[in-house]
Design a protein around this nucleic acid. Sequence first.
DNA 1: TAGTAATATTAGTCTCATCTAACTTTTGTC
DNA 2: GACAAAAGTTAGATGAGACTAATATTACTA
Lengths: 155, 155
Amino acid sequence: MSAKLSASLEDYIEAIASLAGSSGETRAADIADALGVSRPSVTVALRALASRKMVNYRPYSIVSLTEDGRIHATAVLRKHGILSRFFNEILGADEQLADSAACKVEHAIGEEITDRLVEFLAFIDNCPMAAKGGFEYHSERRKEFREEVEKYGKN
Amino acid sequence: MSAKLSASLEDYIEAIASLAGSSGETRAADIADALGVSRPSVTVALRALASRKMVNYRPYSIVSLTEDGRIHATAVLRKHGILSRFFNEILGADEQLADSAACKVEHAIGEEITDRLVEFLAFIDNCPMAAKGGFEYHSERRKEFREEVEKYGKN
DNA sequence: TAGTAATATTAGTCTCATCTAACTTTTGTC
DNA sequence: GACAAAAGTTAGATGAGACTAATATTACTA
């Protein structure tokens, strides 16, 4: 099991994994842009990640993830994707909100909760009428109900 | 809308709200114990919360929440309860895990996601066979499947 | 009411994560 | 190959949140 990283450092490896793409490499400036952070902050983060053997880092050079870093990044990206899907597809939040919520929550849940959420999503994929369609229908009914309350007043 | 608090300060008002009970008051030592934090840390947090008008605080005295603090604490406690229920009742995590995950996630989701989760839970309460019972059944089946794979080997 | 025990605060330090400004290294172009 | 632009790093500062050790205040009790 790789050592625990702070939410901030997880954001960095996540960004590196996303930016690295097929070449497996990125530049500090791209990381800074992706995270909306200054370049010196990236330098600091890369040193911290290098000391934890998560990135291959040499000053003034290109950056790549180590095997450990890749494993950790994959886990974070997995959580992100699952949470985003849950917020958007199941709860019906719009994509942007779902994604930004996923960005924060991904650092707060462990593997067990994540695994269970995966199973839950798989269940709903297999039985869309049972929960997904059902809940969408239910949500619509609640919205109508709210609108009616609005229209006719609460008292 | 009350100003945003850090995750840490939200933990403090949450603890204060929980400890205050009917009297509406607590002591710094109890807050420290509840959060597993030193007493000086509580002093610092109380000053920060007082400057944001979230607590009534005077040195060497008893602590209570202001109206704003109570509102904010209620919102955090609501998120906590909802998340905890979701993790435990829907995803099937044990109570302790559900609670500790809720403790972290409660600071990461906003009101909209929370409201949608409430509606989702309400839906499932009304149609237990649709999703809750269904998913529990589904989970059992997956477990059996895993055990069978285990038993007979993967290849 | 004096003295001790419990409670709370100050003082000083640490780690993280961020910033700006200034400097250095690398890169690309003529 | 020299030199400007781009990219990266140092240096130094800030703010949040935590800690321990020492000090101050309050409360209890004999």
